[in-house]
Each structure stands twice: as C-alpha cells, then as structure tokens.
C-alpha cells in the first residue's frame, strides 16, 4: 500500500513538473520532449488506477504517435517562436485574467468536492464492468459485441482520415526525373547502356 502511495507521488510530481516545463521550455522541440515525459508518467498513474488499457493507449498512441506528430508539426511550421513570445508584456493583463478565472474554477471545484458527493447515475447493464476480469477484458467484451457496429464505423472514420491526409498532402512526385526505378537499374546490361562507335579522325562523335 505504501509503495503505491510512493509511486503515486513520484508519478504525479513528475507529471506536474514536466507539464510546467512544457510551457517554460524556450525551444518548442524541448516542450514536446517534456510532453512525452508527462505522457509516460500519466500512464503510470493510469496503472495505479487499475486502468491498464488506458495506460497502454497513452504509451502506444500518445507517446508513440501523437507526440511524434507534434514534433513533425513543430518542425514543419515556419514560425519564429521568439517573435511569438514578444507580446508577453502586452498580453500580460489578459493572461492574469485567464489565470484568475482558472483559479476561481479551482476554488469552486474544491468547494463542490467538499459539499459532498453528487447524485451520479450508476453504471448498469452493459456499461458495468464484468466481475473477476481485468478492465481490458471487460472493454473488449463490450467493444466487440454490444458496440461492434460503432467499432466498424470507427474503422471507416480512420479510413476517411487516411484518405483526407493523402488528398490534402500527397503530390504525385513520380516525374521521370525524381523517380528512381531500382528494378530497371538492376536489369541494365552493357548492350543497352553503352554504344561502340568508330569515329573517323577529326570528325568527332555524334550523340
């Protein structure tokens, strides 16, 4: 039990610290790297909550794919980040106002928490976890039976995302100059690659 508490505080403090560093880092690439650290520790927190599937998703999808996408986007955009930061003093009052709103929300949230539990609806029927199984198994059991129609529809959504990315960014670069056909290069033989000529003296070669 105590080990869990220690682990919780370890993960939680690293999440918060790296989240702060995401904002404070001067180099946007460093921000993304700090974000990856935050994702990893969030995955640790999910394991402590017994939500193993979410922990796995965070590592595989967020760290493995989304963070990489962020890196690419940061590298792709031609933005002068120094000039973006230049308006800091000018926007300072606005920033303070947003911070105050968030602080007020935090206070209200703590107040609501102190006021006692809400009358939330109970998860019942299909939404209830199956006893004596890990949550990844319960999740699979509903996702591939109750919700199979929506699962297939989600597959179509992913497919449309693929088509969209290809439609919007892919350019057919297979012009004769840019395209390298390795098979053709390998099949080349001396007969078609060279020509033998016997030019007369002083005539030069016709190409």
């Amino acid at each position: 039990m105590t080990l869990q508490v220690v682990a919780f505080y370890l993960f939680a403090s690293i999440v918060i610290a790296s989240a702060v560093m995401v904002i404070l880092a001067r180099n946007p690439v460093h921000s993304v790297l700090w974000l990856i650290l935050a994702f990893f520790n969030a995955a640790g927190l999910m394991v402590l909550l017994h939500a193993e599937f979410i922990a796995m998703l965070v590592v595989i999808v967020y760290v493995g794919a989304v963070a990489v996408l962020f890196l690419f986007v940061v590298m792709m955009l031609d933005i002068d980040f120094a000039s973006l930061r230049a308006g800091f003093v000018k926007n300072f009052p606005l920033g303070i106002a947003v911070a105050l709103v968030l602080l007020a929300e935090l206070v209200l949230g703590i107040g609501a928490y102190r006021a006692g539990a809400l009358n939330l609806g109970a998860a019942e029927g299909t939404a209830a976890p199956i006893p004596m199984t890990s949550n990844i198994e319960s999740l699979g059991a509903v996702l591939y039976s109750e919700y199979l129609f929506l699962f297939e529809a989600a597959g179509i959504v992913l497919l449309v995302a693929m088509i969209g990315a290809i439609v919007l960014t892919h350019r057919d670069l297979r012009s004769p100059r840019a395209h390298q056909d390795i098979g053709k290069q390998v099949r080349r033989n001396p007969d078609e690659a060279t020509i033998m000529t016997q030019p007369a003296v002083g005539k030069g070669v016709d190409l």
């Binding site: 129609f149 529809a153 179509i156 959504v157």
Partner: peptide, 17 residues
C-alpha cells in the same frame, strides 16, 4: 449518444477535407 458522436465525426471529417 455514442452513435451520434461517431456519425457526426465521420460526416465532419469528410467535410473538413
């Protein structure tokens, strides 16, 4: 609600493109 959301995303995603 989940059917609604997935349908909405499917139609929105193709609209964005």
């Amino acid at each position: 609600l989940i059917t609604l959301y997935i349908g909405l995303e499917l139609s929105s995603l193709s609209s964005y493109v």
